[in-house]
């Protein structure tokens, strides 16, 4: 395993999490971009050392093709869902002219209620 790869995965996850922790949906989406790269690098590193492109031509020492296939699938799936999230941001803009994620109204109401009752 390559330490650099493992560290790169960590860096991407850190950066991704930081962005996902924001309130602006665009940044959240960008964060997921990083986060999924990080996850994919975990898979890649799990495949072991670097190797030749897995094309059957008699050579030995190929990279693990299974992790590549899994990463490919994961990339596509994440892409689909991220695009959907962007569409939500778009719709949010249509409705509120912004892409901030507001708090849940009912939850806030109950929180206020609890504070009021507590004070009584």
């Amino acid at each position: 395993m390559s330490l650099a790869l493992a560290v790169a995965a960590g860096i991407l996850v850190s950066g991704g999490l930081y962005l996902v922790l924001q309130r602006t949906l665009t940044r959240v989406v960008l964060g997921f971009g990083l986060l999924s790269h990080g996850a994919n690098l975990v898979l890649l590193a799990a495949g072991g050392r670097a190797g030749a492109v897995p094309l059957v031509d008699g050579r030995r020492g190929m990279a693990d093709p299974l992790v590549q296939a899994m990463i490919l699938t994961a990339i596509v799936i994440t892409f689909g869902i991220t695009a959907f999230l962007l569409a939500l941001a778009y719709r949010s803009w249509q409705l509120t002219r912004d892409d901030q994620v507001e708090d849940d109204r009912e939850d806030r109401r109950i929180a206020r209620l609890a504070t009021r009752r507590g004070r009584r």
Binding site: G16, F32, A39, L43, A45, I81, T82
Partner: peptide, 25 residues
């Protein structure tokens, strides 16, 4: 609004699931 919360939390969990699968592999 609630869809955002729902998607974001679940997508986060899905990504972490992928990480977990990578670790198992």
């Amino acid at each position: 609004r609630s869809g955002m919360t729902y998607v974001v939390v679940n997508l986060l969990a899905s990504t972490l699931l992928l990480v977990a699968i990578g670790l198992v592999y």
